[in-house]
């Protein structure tokens, strides 16, 4: 057979190349499907870790109260206190470093199968700031592209070629190999659903409070702004009580952050409660409650979570 192929080479180079490329693509396709299938299986069998928490948020949580946001959500809202005092289930779906694009994609996935009663959306200064890395960061949603069509429009923001790349079954798991292995090894984790998504920080600050100027201009990302608006709108449409929160910082701010002002404005226009702890005197005088200037530590999270519950209960 190969002798015949060699003859083809000498006579018809195009056909020979076509056969070679077809064989190459066939093998690549086979390996891609086989290895991709293995990754898919082990991705969904994780019992701990970052990817597990994302998967749980998107596909499993049925909590009454959901907390959305980036690291300032994940590390500052302890669902245990919400469950105790509000007598409702609570899960923290926040994820470190993720932009508003991520929160909205996760919200869409959750709303397609479950209707929470309360959503707390923690936003931070610069939430609509233009940044290329924001689109890199939502790559953690790629494993859900095929199974969650409601998230596709957001994942497609990554690049015009994303649909093409996602023809591969391996690509969604790019750079996740070790995380998936780790997520499967820690199967003996007895903690209640990974501490309900909350990740405590343990250090304490010991420094005087600084002053930060928030008025420096920057470019806004229209995709982020639109996702935020859609987040608010979808909650309203689904009749979910939404609280938008600017949680505590350990710095005195001067000037106004443009993103925060826009976020506030949209909240007010939609009659959404906007709770602002950014200049809370108690936290500004308590460095021991912070891990760094933008994240409270475990002790701070306890106090802040309870203050949040007080605010919510006072508004109900």
């Amino acid at each position: 057979m190969f002798g015949t192929l060699k003859e083809i080479v000498q006579k018809k180079g195009y056909l020979y190349l076509f056969i070679k490329l077809a064989a190459f693509l066939l093998l690549a396709f086979f390996f891609d499907r086989a290895i991709g299938g293995i990754f898919q299986k082990f991705y969904h069998s994780q019992t701990s870790g970052w990817e597990y928490r994302t998967k749980y948020s998107i596909e499993d949580t049925k909590a009454d109260i959901l907390i959305f946001g980036a690291s300032r959500a994940q590390q500052q809202y302890n669902p245990v206190y919400f469950e105790e005092r509000m007598q409702q289930t609570c899960y923290n779906v926040g994820r470190d470093g993720e932009p508003v694009l991520y929160y909205y994609a996760v919200l869409k996935a959750i709303l397609s199968r479950h209707l929470p009663k309360i959503i707390i959306l923690d936003i931070e200064n610069g939430v609509f700031k233009e940044s290329e890395s924001s689109y890199d960061r939502i790559s953690i949603l790629l494993p859900f592209y095929k199974s969650h069509p409601e998230m596709r429009s957001i994942i497609d923001f990554r690049s015009p070629y994303e649909k093409l790349k996602l023809q591969s079954n391996i690509y969604p798991y790019n750079s996740m190999l070790l995380k998936i292995v780790k997520g499967n090894i820690k199967s003996g984790n007895k903690e209640k659903v990974d501490m309900n998504g909350y990740l405590p920080l343990l250090r304490s600050l010991n420094e005087p409070v600084r002053t930060v100027d928030l008025s420096k201009p920057y470019n806004l990302d229209s995709n982020k702004l639109n996702c935020y608006k859609a987040f608010v709108n979808d909650c309203k449409t689904a009749n979910i009580k939404l609280y938008i929160v600017n949680s505590p910082y350990y710095f005195n701010s001067i000037g106004k952050d443009i993103s925060m002002e826009i976020a506030k404005d949209i909240a007010y226009k939609n009659s959404i409660d906007f709770i602002d702890f950014s200049k809370d005197d108690f936290f500004l005088k308590s460095p021991q409650l912070f891990d760094d200037t933008v994240h409270v530590n475990m002790a701070g999270a306890k106090i802040f979570s309870n203050k949040m519950i007080d605010s919510i209960q006072s508004k109900q």
Binding site: F24, L27, I35, D136, I170, Y173, N174, S175, L177
Partner: peptide
């Protein structure tokens, strides 16, 4: 030969840095 290069491509997709 072809399997080697197919796997190389898949390794790129799996552990390459696309960003």
């Amino acid at each position: 030969r072809t399997s080697y290069y197919s796997i190389l491509v898949l390794l790129i997709i799996l552990v390459g840095v696309f960003d």
